[in-house]
Amino acid sequence: MFSWFANPHRFLTLSSWLAPICYALGALLIAWSLWQGLWIVPKDEYQGGDIMRVMFLHVPAAWLAMASYMGMAVMSFIWFIWRHEVADIAAKAIAPLGATWTALCLATGSIWGKPTWGTWWQWDDARMMSVLFMFFLFLGYMALRAAMDTRQKAARAGAILAMVGAINVPLIKFSVDLFTSLHQDASVITVDGPKMAAVYLWPLLASGLGHSLLFAGLVMTLMRAEIWQRRAAQIRARLMAGD
């Protein structure tokens, strides 16, 4: 099944119509969730008033921070086992975009935290800490790839690091949870959980799906760019050899 996707030519054909669909659907869903989130849904006094409207940006960013790292690790694993070039191209494309959404999650969380907790940064919040370390994992991955002198080495080193990081994520998360559960005070907001009213649920799901589709479209476009770059490099190498 992986082998079917592993052909770069087939990927180019597939993504040439799939990426625009992702963009269109993603834009629609995000627009609807923003309209609902900013204009329609009532503010929740229990969550500190209007500030909870940041949720429709913050929660999809948090979801993508986790999902994109896992996606990168799975792609790295597929490349490491089967050496399918497209999987490596995908992992490489996910990294900068995943780092962007992870940074967005941290920034919006911080902005949300200021009026809610009275501080920009809360060490006691396990989620902030976990996402911060996720961000460092992305940075390390990109820095390592950039430091390697050949594409093949970058792919191998990146895959090893992404997999090591992925198996450490549960341990990091557990340790951070333990750390914060001992320090926690009562001011922590509860966004998730069954307390959330249904009026917020649909816009939130729409924003999560919309951001995911937009992300997937961007990953595909970036992969296309990488494939074109590699082809151009191949042709150039052949030209040089032929001269």
Binding site: L34, L38, K43, G48, G49, D50, I51, R53, V54, L57, H58, A107, T108, I111, W112, K114, P115
Partner: peptide, 12 residues
């Protein structure tokens, strides 16, 4: 929005 409008607009 209420008093936190600045934070909301800043996020978006």
């Amino acid at each position: 929005f209420d008093k936190n409008a600045g934070f909301i607009w800043a996020s978006y």
